[in-house]
């Protein structure tokens, strides 16, 4: 039996109810995809495509790195979109496996540095990849951030981590289309760093804004 207080609250809420547009998964994914396309377009227009991109002139590790990051970005995006509409029984294990697979990238980078004979090759503008990757991540992740803010994530820390990781991965993939470097050391270090930084920002900063 509901108390008078409860009935009064129910009446107020019912009176206040206006039509709302349900947050369907398909719409969230479409928005995330659009944001990624915009990110790629911005990178290509402002920074230009790397030479030989259309001709297929890139290393095998460049392909592996970007495919793994793209997979990670997709897995995290699927989780983020789903987390906005919570339900008991939901599983968000995809990103975990994608993270394990993507960990190959920095591991390969560190191994390449460790096994490199002589001074490790370094170019002054390599760290810029981290900066540009993070800027691209902000564009790619902004729509997902808004989606989660509007939604009801019940594990804000996890949602923040997925958001940061996914945005970092997608941003790095987008920027990678412009980056001229091919080496395992470069990709393993400077293209893994923005993903790690974005993941930490998502987990420890953005997660605070996910509470409701």
């Amino acid at each position: 039996m509901n108390t008078p207080d409860m009935r009064s609250l129910i009446d107020e809420l019912a009176e206040d109810s206006a039509p709302v547009q349900p947050m369907r998964k398909g719409r969230g994914l479409a928005q995330a995809l659009a944001a990624f396309v915009v990110t790629v377009a911005v990178v290509l227009v402002l920074l230009g495509a790397r030479s030989g991109l259309m001709e297929g002139e890139f290393s095998a590790f460049f392909v592996v790195t970007n495919l793994l990051l793209l997979l990670l970005g997709i897995a995290c995006t699927l989780a983020v979109v789903a987390m906005a509409s919570p339900r008991v029984g939901a599983e968000h294990d995809g990103p975990r496996w994608a993270m394990v697979m993507a960990a190959v990238i920095p591991v390969a980078g560190v191994a390449a540095v460790a096994g490199h004979a002589g001074p490790v090759p370094y170019h002054w503008d390599e760290p810029l990849c981290v900066l540009f990757g993070l800027i691209a991540a902000m564009i790619a992740g902004s729509v997902q951030f808004r989606w989660l803010k509007r939604g009801a994530p019940v594990s804000p820390e996890r949602a923040g981590l997925m958001l940061g990781t996914g945005a970092g991965a997608l941003g790095t993939v987008a920027y990678g289309l412009s980056c001229p470097f091919n080496s395992v050391i470069h990709l393993g270090l400077w293209h893994a760093a923005p993903v790690i930084v974005a993941a930490l920002v998502g987990r420890f900063v953005l997660a605070r804004y996910m509470r409701w």
Binding site: V20, M23, S85, V88
Partner: peptide, 23 residues
């Protein structure tokens, strides 16, 4: 109830109701 009201757009009509409410 207030949370349900505020976040009622997050219910996906294609899915079951109780698991959403329970979360």
């Amino acid at each position: 109830l207030v949370s349900l009201h505020t976040k009622r757009a997050t219910y996906d009509p294609a899915r079951a109701f109780f698991p959403w409410l329970a979360a």
